[in-house]
Nucleic acid binder design. Structure first.
Length: 527
RNA sequence: GGCUCGGUAGCUCAGCUGGUUAGAGCGUGGGAUUCAUAACCCCAAGGUCGGGAGUUCAAGUCUCCCCCGAGCCA
């Protein structure tokens, strides 16, 4: 079965911010994990490019909407490459293929009697792309979210008959695993319990959008078309000579339904309520899970242009490297909760966990093994037994990492991996091979102890593969092991789960000259 | 205004269906050690579990009220 997962399709109103990077990075870790387990994975990301806001932003910049979208989505594309995001697809909703899918989808919905005309009158926020409830007779009503003036609209729009799906949606979100984390489920349930109202799916007088077939002058409401991007992404030509005209009928062979939509908590309603109803209407399967993670603040403050405290993901990557940032965000912030980016803590954790605990463990052990055992992995001796303390620690770590990654508990996975490294360091200190070695006739003991720690290091590297792939590769290189393949369409000649078995490190294989696998972060000045 | 989710050591958080001296990591202080990236290992200090009342033999853990923060709906 295909494991399909999605990031949101990011709105190209502005250049990428750290929040988008956070979501994407988490998805990348999950995708890599699933690939390592041997699943066929489709990680979808991309950009949402329609709507009035985009049209106006483009105008303000003196660009055509398409040129503006080309520019911003290229930035996203490039950023994900720099972050080594292993997305299998990158879909843009201004892609002509997408228009075709939207039309097909709309055809199904309309044929099902779920599209009706209605007059919509009220105050509209362009930033939200939403009608607001009547703001009690103010002269210049403001959007409570965006603090900007609302615009009066009076137009005939097409509505999707969401109200027909009340019961089905209630049943869906009653399933405990559908909305994650569970703490956000009640909120959505309360919203649905108030009664679902039809929502408009078209706009008039908005050229920058996908035209609604059979309804001149209407373009699709940006959300209606954006969500469908997930489907278009799956129907992309797979480059094996087939014609690229796959339609909705082929979705089930292309990886639909998604196993999980990973999103920010702000768009939970669209994904957990509107989207499933749309899919039901079109006769398509529903995603298995919607995971709404929290938001990032910085040093306790909301990030924003007006405060001037925005952390630019590109700059962050350049100064600190992908491993450091990935580790900090995934290891320190419970995925699902809001989190606070604190520079001191960032530096402390990266240095302690990655450089000191993990990196130094490998470094010190490798140095000893090379010195006393002719540059090779020493004979395992007693260390190959499954009841060796480090073998047991390793199995305990593995038994935590896998289920934690399965449920997007990256923090738990990181901690369990780290725990193995801590155990290995502790073992080394109690065994003290450096002093045992000074006495004659203890070679075997030292060999066995060093082997055990090297083997533990190998397993730490393997467990870290999904979270910090580069560091994992560097560690494996130090152990003269092949790096893990966890990118798109990659497989490993020896499956990951098999590589995770204790004792596979080959005795006698040469150890490269030790070089720190993780440099300590030394930041001069604020990020 | 209604609702949701939080408020546990300086910081980030664990604490399941109520039950021995409330835990971890970071930070801080001390010790030990020298294989190693001034790294590792060990130990310690630090909490009246937001406040108040109640239920109970027993409450961080249940009930009610209040305060603070984030958010959803109106």
């Amino acid at each position: 079965m295909t494991y399909t997962l999605t990031t949101p399709l990011y709105y190209v109103n502005d250049k990428p911010h750290l929040g988008s990077a956070y979501t994407t990075l988490a998805c990348d870790a999950l995708a890599r994990f699933q690939r390592l387990k041997g699943e066929e994975v489709v990680l979808i990301t991309g950009c949402d490019e329609h709507g009035q806001k985009i049209q106006r932003t483009a105008e303000a910049a003196g660009l055509s909407p398409q040129a503006h979208c080309d520019r911003i989505s290229a930035e996203y594309h490039q950023l994900w490459q720099q972050w080594q995001i292993s997305n299998d697809r990158f879909i843009r909703t201004s892609d002509p293929r997408h228009r075709r899918i939207v039309h097909e989808f709309f055809g199904r919905v309309e044929a099902n009697g779920d599209v009706v005309e209605g007059r919509q009158q009220g105050w509209y926020c362009v930033a939200c792309e939403e009608f607001k409830d009547d703001p009690a007779g103010a002269l210049d009503p403001q959007c409570p979210v965006h603090q900007r003036s609302l615009e009066w609209r009076d137009e005939v729009n097409l509505f999707f008959r969401l109200s027909r799906y009340q019961e089905q949606i209630e049943a869906l979100i009653a399933q405990p695993e559908f909305i994650q984390p569970a703490s956000r489920r009640r909120e959505v349930q309360n919203f649905v319990a108030q009664g679902l109202r039809d929502f408009s799916i078209s706009r008039v007088n908005l050229p920058w959008g996908i035209p609604v077939p059979g309804h001149d002058g209407h373009t699709f409401y940006v959300w209606f078309d954006a969500l469908l991007g997930y489907l278009t992404a799956l129907l992309e030509s797979q480059g094996d000579g087939e014609t690229s005209e796959a339609g909705l009928g082929e979705l089930s062979q292309r990886g639909w339904p998604a196993q999980v939509h990973v999103i920010g908590k702000d768009i939970l309603r669209f994904h957990a309520v509107y989207w499933p109803a749309m899919l039901l209407s079109a006769g398509l399967e529903l995603p298995k899970q919607v995971f709404g993670h929290g938001f990032l603040t910085r040093e306790g403050q909301k990030m924003g242009k007006s405060i001037g405290n925005v952390l630019d993901p590109e700059a962050l990557l350049e100064r600190c490297g992908a491993d450091a940032v990935r580790w900090y965000l995934l290891r320190d912030i419970p995925f699902g909760d809001d989190g606070d980016f604190q520079q001191q803590r960032f530096v402390d954790l990266v240095n302690n966990d990655l450089a000191n605990t993990i990196g130094n463990m490998l470094n010190r052990t490798s140095a000893m093994a090379r010195r006393w055992f002719e540059g090779t992995v020493p004979p395992a001796g007693a260390a190959q037994n499954a009841d060796h303390p480090l073998a047991q620690a390793a199995n305990a770590a593995i038994a935590l990492v896998i289920p934690n990654l399965e449920t997007l508990d990256f923090r738990g996975a990181a901690e369990a991996s780290l725990q193995l490294a801590i155990a290995a360091n502790g073992f080394l200190n109690t065994q003290a091979p450096w002093s045992v070695m000074k006495k004659e006739g203890n070679q075997d003991q030292v060999a066995s102890d060093l082997y055990a720690v090297l083997e533990a290091a190998r397993l730490v590297a393997l467990l870290l593969g999904p979270l910090v792939p580069d560091l994992s590769a560097r560690m494996l290189e130090q152990l003269a092991q092949a790096p893990l393949n966890s990118g798109p369409n990659q497989t490993n000649s020896i499956p990951w789960l098999q590589q995770l078995q204790w004792g596979r490190l080959a005795v006698g294989s040469p150890l490269p000259e030790p070089a720190p696998v993780m440099a300590r972060l030394e930041l001069d000045g604020p990020l």
